[in-house]
Design a protein around this nucleic acid. Structure first.
Lengths: 250, 250
DNA sequence: AGCTGTGAACAAATTCACAGCA
DNA sequence: TGCTGTGAATTTGTTCACAGCT
């Protein structure tokens, strides 16, 4: 590494078995001088984190870029390049300290503290999301479930009461919620997004199959379940050379 | 267009109000001579399709690249470039016939016929997926719900009986299933994938938070709900400059 | 005149290949 | 010696800007 300085991070005393959720005595955000991390790399950091957690759980203390890349499903050159944007956290000739690297990535993503999250739209998918343990275990805390349908109010989902959508502003304000999840039908999604933005939410995860428009400064990521299937169908169609069920409606 | 030939496609008599699901009398798969469609473009085609369907539903017969791009959330140059890989389906000086273009994209993706799909793992998420109307409406037909837990068998979900996982091979064989969806816990996912591949499935949509290894020729796409949140958290952390809830556990 | 379709310029991401350190 | 970290080369994707058709 030549010009980048990992800044404010001395690689000593930081590694702890449970280091991720326990604040230690140093700045929690890298605030790297210049360097911006490429989007493609950012999208893979959570994958590396997951792989590292699996290695920790399996009792592995050290790993090479080759091993970690295997566990994450990428090639080792890409892994090393990605990690190089964060800093120089490995040891030449040896590899990476699994727990140390895991902490560094978690910190970079911002998972060393909890993120309160609201979910709007408690249908089938909202239910599944509310119950998804992967959120909680990665630092996301669902603080409220909201739904416009009065019939669902007071219903208990994942230990939380479903509350009226109108309480959104209140909850976002009092609990400092920055991230909202939309799991409503498509027609409602833009309205929900507008209300979220007005309430102060600046990051939205959208499961509704519709394009949201939001002001600058608000991030939207979308997950469209049927889009993924359609991409598979496209490739499937090429593979089989021809149509798999042509006219075969029987 | 200079060298590409849309092959076997005369742009006449193909447009129909409900054209998508009704086989018309011509080859259903493009089988374009040379041209391969870039992955990034393939990933956007379903978005265009959705936007076009919305336009059709809204009664729009013709649209410009600018309008369609707006509805799809991309810029018009990208849209035109993407469409150019499929062929020359617009009219200079005019725009695109919404319904005709929609049919062409659906055909390219392979949505002009139905794809039978099995879902394995009928927990919260499996439930949500089984009930998701977006699958059926886009040409995916859920033919079976499988779960290893005997306690769930015979339960009715979305009008289908939950059946033992062991019936996988049977169902895949008799119904010519090419696409499988995994919604099991992470530990079970690789086993399920292996069985799917052995049974003849060649495309897998994986919701379990784990990396699957499959032989060449099998496509896997993954959806990890918590990864999307983590990416948002990363950007959120940069936006707020500093940590949103540092130590503020009260 | 207006809008598509597309080469050419540009930018981002990936892969290669090896210098440099433990 | 063996592995990381990284410039350079390559590939992939995006944007520009305009020729060419309606």
């Amino acid at each position: 590494m030549t010009s980048r300085t990992p800044a404010g991070e001395t690689p000593t005393g930081v590694v702890r078995a449970d280091g991720l959720r326990s604040p230690v005595g140093h700045a929690d955000v890298p605030a790297r001088p210049g360097r911006e991390i490429p989007e493609a790399t950012v999208a893979r950091l959570p994958v590396y984190l997951r792989a590292l957690t699996a290695l920790v759980d399996g009792g592995t203390a050290t790993c090479s870029s080759e091993e970690l890349a295997g566990a994450a499903g990428v090639n080792s050159a890409k892994l090393r390049k990605d990690l190089s944007y964060l800093g120089s956290y490995g040891t030449r000739g040896v590899g990476y300290d699994v727990d140390y690297l895991r902490y560094q990535i978690a910190r970079e993503i911002g998972l060393t503290h909890d993120w309160p999250v609201v979910i709007v739209g408690i249908g089938n998918l909202g239910h599944a999301l509310a119950n998804y343990s992967g959120f909680r275990s990665r630092g996301f805390r669902v603080v409220a479930l909201l739904d416009a349908a009065t019939t669902r109010h007071e219903e208990l989902v994942a230990g939380l009461e479903v509350r009226p959508f109108d309480e959104l502003e209140d909850i976002v304000g009092t609990q400092s919620v920055a991230i909202g999840v939309i799991a409503t039908p498509a027609v409602a999604a833009q309205d929900v997004a507008d209300r979220m933005v007005a309430a102060g939410i600046t990051s939205i995860l959208n499961f509704a199959p519709t394009v949201l428009s939001v002001p600058d400064g608000v991030d939207v990521r979308k997950v469209d379940l049927s889009i993924e299937l359609q991409i598979l169908a496209y490739h499937e169609q090429r593979k089989t050379g021809q149509l798999p069920t042509e006219g075969a409606s029987a």
